[in-house]
């Protein structure tokens, strides 16, 4: 994501946020199921800016990408982006006290980087090691033992969009601990990080296009609908620890045959 470009700005922001979270957390009354958003006015402002950037730059690029780039290539791009993120996932899994899952993630990374040709093919999945994704925002949630709904004040970050204090600090931490960032800095090939950020942005935008279009089209207040959807999504990710997006769902319950209705 573009987050790498914004790291410096974000550091100051994160420091402020930590202070704000420490000072403010828990002293506001919220309606059941509503997200705590004390900074709604500046958030809505940033949201409008992001939507404009998206409409004129990010979305047109993504639509072109989805239309012209063959599906298998798109999947390869997704795999490469995911593969580059495995070390950060592994570090977070260790931090969350899940050494065996971290070992699996490292195994995935080694298999896919070699046999999978720099991560283009997810060979490890065929071998039965499904992907996992953990970020430092989730690690903070595990450490804090707070309900996952409580991520501190809701935030709309420049370019990145929906976030909260917990996840914004998490983004910064992931950036700091990322072995690839450290490596590119050491080797003086920082432009690789920018290339990766651009590709990641288009990849994520293309995979969220359908869902975001649906929310925008069917909501009367897009900002609030997205705020709720983002928070719920993060809660689900934190709760179902380690479960990759979907692959681990038990389809066959005891005594129930697997049912597909269309052939």
């Amino acid at each position: 994501m573009i987050r790498y470009l914004l790291s410096r700005v974000r550091f100051g922001l994160a420091v402020m946020l930590v202070a704000a979270t420490a000072g403010l957390s828990g002293c506001a009354t919220r309606e059941q199921g509503e997200v705590w958003d004390p900074l709604e006015v500046p958030n809505r402002f940033m949201f409008a800016i992001n939507q404009t950037i998206d409409m004129f730059i990010v979305r047109p690029i993504t639509v072109t990408y989805k239309f012209w780039v063959p599906e298998p290539v798109q999947r390869g791009v997704t795999n490469v982006v995911q593969n580059l993120g495995e070390p950060v996932t592994a570090i977070n899994e260790v931090a969350q006290g899940e050494p065996s899952r971290a070992a699996q993630t490292v195994a995935r990374f080694l298999v896919n980087t070699t046999l999978g040709v720099l991560g283009i093919f997810d060979v490890a999945k065929e071998f039965g090691i499904p992907p996992t994704k953990e970020d430092f925002g989730q690690t903070i949630a595990v450490w804090a033992k707070a309900p996952p709904e409580d991520g501190g004040p809701y935030l709309v970050l420049p370019l990145i969009g929906p976030s909260n204090a917990r996840d914004a600090v998490g983004l910064l931490a992931d950036y700091v601990i990322d072995p690839f960032r450290i490596l590119t800095w050491q080797l003086d090939v920082e432009y690789l990080m920018y290339a990766r950020a651009g590709v990641t942005l288009v990849d994520i935008r293309s995979r969220t296009m359908q869902a975001l279009d649906d929310i925008e089209k069917n909501s009367v207040d897009y900002y609030s609908a997205l705020r709720s959807a983002y928070t719920q999504r993060r809660v689900a990710e934190i709760r179902q620890k380690g479960a990759p997006q979907t692959a681990s769902l038990a389809l066959v319950a005891s005594g129930r045959p697997e049912l597909g209705f269309a052939r």
């Binding site: 869902a211 009367v220 207040d221 609030s224 959807a229 719920q232």
Partner: peptide, 26 residues
Amino acid sequence: VEGVSMGMTRRSDFNAYISRNGLDAL
């Protein structure tokens, strides 16, 4: 859908619209 409840999302959506514009406007 992927952990996001349609009902809950719609409620936040409507709630925000109502507090800005009122129920009749919704």
